[in-house]
Design a protein around this nucleic acid. Structure first.
Length: 493
RNA sequence: GGCGGCAUAGCCAAGUGGCUAAGGCAGCGGUCUGCAAAACCGUUAUUCACCGGUUCGAAUCCGGUUGCCGCCUCCA
């Protein structure tokens, strides 16, 4: 089986074939840099990060372009409010964006171009559109004449008549058709401006993506992606601009991720349920966020809530508990073994063979339109197999077991890396998790450890009643204890 | 008003024509444990919103009904 992807343009899954063998160009619409990134940005970024990494895992040489739109009404407004220029706002939020993305283990794009570095290209493209009769200017504003582009509406599945029937379109006397959109706008007093054949002005919203995608990936490239809300008007307009100018298809496959909701309602500023990535990361390990996102298919809507994230945390704990067990067993053995695959006895061999089918089951899931949810199901299966194997084996693992566990861990980590999971050290993961949970619940580490110590003394005297009272008291604070032969470890439920 | 999507166990969520309807969380029974926790084993949907139809065969295709949601305006 080979890769199939759902193409918004054709509304069906198609066999994926790159334009150039072994190479893939992806353009993902980045953010407009006027505010902190929220979990909707996080979802989109994580989804396309996994797509990027998976294509690389398949052996493709991927060029991944994600832009910053750094000139726009909202940025101008923000700059006015904060008393600085748009460059200052852009720098601030690009830096914040990069920090958030790094924290989420989202790989940096191959190139992250900025709109304001491509003004000349925009002017050239608009000039071409003029030459093709697709653009017109009115008092320094330039519009795209959508009626002149016959494919207009093909991506979003609309036609101009239907859209005009909807009454929510700006009345703008300057436009020949209400659906025409701005390519270039006259700059008002106090707004940033660039010289152009149409006077001092600034670009419209969609033009930058047409220019930058063509600059870095050519007239036609493999994959264009973004959130589903960009289908219309943004991507529709990009198609009109790019294809209108070049006469060639802009992208072969259009991929769009579904929306994020918060507590079952749409995330919006007016509802006050905007969750910044930065704030979420105070409460959850970044991989908990990734796991949560990847547990649903990328095109389905996803609902963030405390409960759903708690479940994701439980799942992530399960993975890391196994990784910790593997780490501990292998550390005790120096991680090496003389055993060989061919000489393994029955039980060991079966476990290793199951583990060795994991990559192929993973690929099968991912090849089906990046079905990360199914892929994660396979990882849980693998974890259960390993836990069972660990539970059955003797305390001191045999060289065979060390070999099997070592190989298994490699496989797990290699696949996890494609999803951006299992990148942390298990001990660090649990330490950080405990600190976060203690802080979130306003608990006191010294107090908990004092009680744990008191219980240890009680247990040493076989005062089970006292020991159980302490356990009960801690349990009420959601602190669970685990007695091991050496010591008692605790964790927040 | 136009366009589109979704409806699978208590919750989350795969599966989109045919083996026993993945997996996670929660629950229950067991093993382990002083008691627990974790882990493991077993168990939890004869059924996929509802009604028709196509088919040897449908959760999966078609038509209708109901409910929820998104886009059509800035938006990942």
């Amino acid at each position: 089986m080979s890769l199939r992807v759902y193409n918004t343009l054709t509304r069906q899954k198609e066999a994926f074939q790159s334009i150039e063998p072994g190479k893939i160009g992806i353009y993902a619409c980045g953010i407009t840099v006027y505010d902190l990134c929220h979990i909707g940005h996080a979802r989109s970024a994580i989804v396309f990060d996994v797509i990027n990494k998976y294509l690389q895992y398949l052996g493709f040489d991927v060029t991944f372009i994600k832009n910053f739109t750094d000139v726009d009404d909202k940025i101008i407004y923000r700059a006015h409010r904060e008393g600085c220029d748009i460059k200052g706002i852009a720098e601030k939020y690009i830096e914040a964006h990069n920090r958030d993305m790094d924290a989420l283990s989202v790989a940096r794009p191959t190139i992250a171009p900025r709109a304001t570095d491509n003004i000349e290209g925009m002017i050239r493209l608009i000039t071409t559109l003029f030459e093709k009769g697709l653009a017109y200017d009115v008092d320094g504003d330039v519009y795209y004449a959508v009626e002149k582009f016959k494919g207009y509406g093909k991506l979003s599945g609309r036609n101009l008549e239907d859209m005009l029937a909807g009454a929510r379109i700006d009345v703008n006397e300057k436009k020949r058709n209400p659906m025409d959109f701005a390519l270039w706008k006259t700059s008002k007093e106090g707004e940033p401006w660039w010289d152009s054949p149409w006077g001092k002005g600034r670009p419209g919203w969609h033009i930058e993506c047409s220019v930058m995608s063509q600059r870095y990936l050519g007239a036609t490239f493999d994959i264009h992606g973004g959130g589903e809300d960009l289908i219309f008007p943004h991507h529709e307009n990009e198609i009109a601009q790019s294809e209108g100018a070049t006469g060639k298809p802009l992208a072969r496959y259009w991929l769009h991720n579904g929306f994020v909701r918060v507590n079952s309602e749409k995330m919006s500023k007016s509802l006050g349920n905007f969750a910044a990535i930065r704030d979420m990361l105070l409460d959850y390990h970044p991989e908990v966020l990734r796991l949560f996102v990847l547990q649903s298919h990328y095109r389905s809507p996803v609902d963030f809530s405390e409960g759903s994230l708690r479940d994701a945390r439980m799942g992530m704990d399960r993975f890391y508990a196994t990784l910790k067990a593997l780490k501990d067993v292998l550390a005790g053995q120096g991680g090496t073994s003389d055993a060989r695959q061919g000489s393994l006895t029955e039980g060991h061999r079966q476990v290793l063979e199951k583990m060795m089918t994991l990559p192929e089951r993973f690929t099968e899931a991912m090849d089906d339109d990046f079905n990360t949810a199914r892929a994660i199901g396979q990882l849980y299966d693998a974890v259960r197999i390993l836990n069972s194997y660990l539970a059955e084996g003797p305390k001191e693992p045999s060289p065979e077991a060390v070999y099997v566990l070592g190989r298994s861990r490699e496989i797990l980590l290699r696949i996890g890396a494609v999803l951006g999971l299992f990148l942390d050290d298990p001990d660090r993961y649990f330490d950080a998790d405990r600190n976060r949970e203690v802080r979130k619940r306003g608990l006191n580490v010294e107090e908990i450890e004092g009680l744990v110590e008191a219980r240890r003394l009680a247990r040493a005297q076989k005062d089970w009643k006292r020991a159980d009272e302490i356990r009960q008291a801690l349990a009420e604070k959601k602190v669970s204890l685990k007695d091991t032969s050496a010591r008692t470890v605790w964790k927040i439920e």
